[in-house]
Amino acid sequence: MNIFDNVEALSARVPDGAFVALPPEYSWVPASLARALIVQGTRDLHVLCVPIGGITVDMLIGAGCIGTLEAAAVSLGEAGLAPRFTEAVQSGSIRMKDSTCPAIHAGLQAAEKGVPFMPLGGLIGSDIEANRDDWRVVPDPMDSGNGPIALVSALKPDFAIFHSPKADRHGNVWIGKRRELMVMAHAAKETLVTVEKIVDEDFLADEATAAGTLGNLYVSGIAEAKNGAWPSVLHGVYEADCEEIATYAYEAKTVEGFQAFMERTLAQTRLAAAE
């Protein structure tokens, strides 16, 4: 586990072509780290949304960072459709692996256990299943009376990335009840985390904090990033910046509008980092 000086040092760990797991906008999305990936010109990422994506993944698509996307859905929520995602899928400029929420959770759980696949109810007869060559429907192997059952392949990302209010100096990261972040980190080879603040207390010393902590066994790098989830929510710290997201939803409908928006937002990020 290393503590890095800034977000750029953390993003530099992610090479082109990496398989990266990303939480949804309401679960501590690493927006600053994503902007750093955009600035460093990352290409051909395989991004896994756990299990849905929003403005952050839409920006990564618009900036040309993503080659393959796996998600159960991508939208800007109340602000409407995700414009760069919509355009990319309609034009076929990214490879889309459509999924469904519990299949993504189950694939990560398989990786957590170190087994190659996980059985899951439902899915049979869905065109999602019909178009996934990494899923199978098999006869009930245990004769349990269930009938045919779907198997989904383990999902083993190179990196899990997320943001959090705080980590301790030992690299233990607070996740509260956002336990999908725990599953992501267990499944991934490396976990990179940005935090609002690195603090002096030891989260594992008290059972109350230990219960909501990802242990440093899984964490390879941490860096401080103030407002690192902005414009999305960081529960208990700040609310979503709905105005910024609505502005994005409107301006990013065109390539030119997206580029103008990104120039502005990246300049703002640089200014905040310099303060």
């Binding site: 159960a72 469904t100 109810g121």
Partner: peptide
């Protein structure tokens, strides 16, 4: 047909599972 998309909407969310259970 799929994967050629005319108008894309967000996606299937958890429907392929919840509809069964």
């Amino acid at each position: 047909g799929y994967p050629a998309i005319d108008r894309r909407f967000p996606g299937s969310f958890g429907s392929a599972y919840m509809y069964f259970v």
